[in-house]
Design a protein around this nucleic acid. Structure first.
Length: 140
DNA sequence: CCATTCATAGCCT
DNA sequence: AGGCTATGAATGG
C-alpha cells in the first residue's frame, strides 16, 4: 500500500506492504498518512536523528546491495563523490550513477549524499530535493 | 582554463 | 545484446 508522509522539506510517498518498504517517491501521491516503521524513521530523520532503518525491499541486484552498504557507511552530514564510492566498491563511477538512479528508496538509502566530483550530480526525483536534503543535513 | 572525447561497468528495453 | 547514463580523467584548443 502507498502512504503519504508530509515532511518539513516536502511531501514523500512510500509503498509499505506491512513488512518492508518497497518504494519511495519524493512527491505527493494520492495516498493517506499512516503510522509504520517508515514514518517513524522519517520522524527521526527530520529531527536530526539517524535511527535504525525499517526493513527495506531486497536489493534488486547484488551490486545494489553493496552500493546500499556503501552509502549507509557515509557519516551523516557528509558527502562523497561518485568516484569515491566507486573506488570503495571497486567499480566505475558511471555504474554508480546507474545504480543510484535505479535505487527505488531515496532518502532511506542516502543516495542524496553522493555528488559528482565537481558539481551536485543528479537525483532521480529532482535536484531540488537533493539540495534541500543536503542543506538540511549540513545544519542550514 | 574551457570544451570534447574516451574509458568504464552496471542498468533498462 | 545494445544503448544509455546521477562520472571522471585525459586530451586538445
Amino acid at each position: 500500500m502507498v502512504y503519504l508522509y508530509d515532511s518539513p522539506l516536502g511531501p514523500i510517498s512510500y509503498e509499505w506492504d506491512g513488512e518492508a518498504c518497497q518504494h519511495v517517491w519524493l512527491e505527493r501521491l494520492d495516498a493517506v498518512n499512516h503510522h509504520d516503521p517508515v514514518s517513524a524513521w522519517l520522524d527521526g530523520y527530520f529531527q536530526g536523528e539517524s535511527a535504525a532503518l525499517p526493513l527495506l525491499a531486497k536489493p534488486a541486484t547484488d551490486f545494489q546491495g553493496k552500493m546500499r552498504a556503501g552509502l549507509l557507511d557515509i557519516p551523516p552530514g557528509e558527502v562523497r563523490t561518485y568516484g569515491d564510492i566507486a573506488k570503495v566498491l571497486s567499480t566505475s563511477p558511471r555504474a554508480m550513477g546507474q545504480a543510484l538512479g535505479a535505487n527505488p528508496l531515496p532518502i532511506l538509502i542516502p543516495c542524496h549524499r553522493v555528488i559528482a566530483a565537481d558539481g551536485l550530480g543528479g537525483f532521480s526525483c529532482g535536484l531540488a530535493w537533493k539540495k534541500k536534503l543536503l542543506k538540511f543535513e549540513r545544519g542550514f
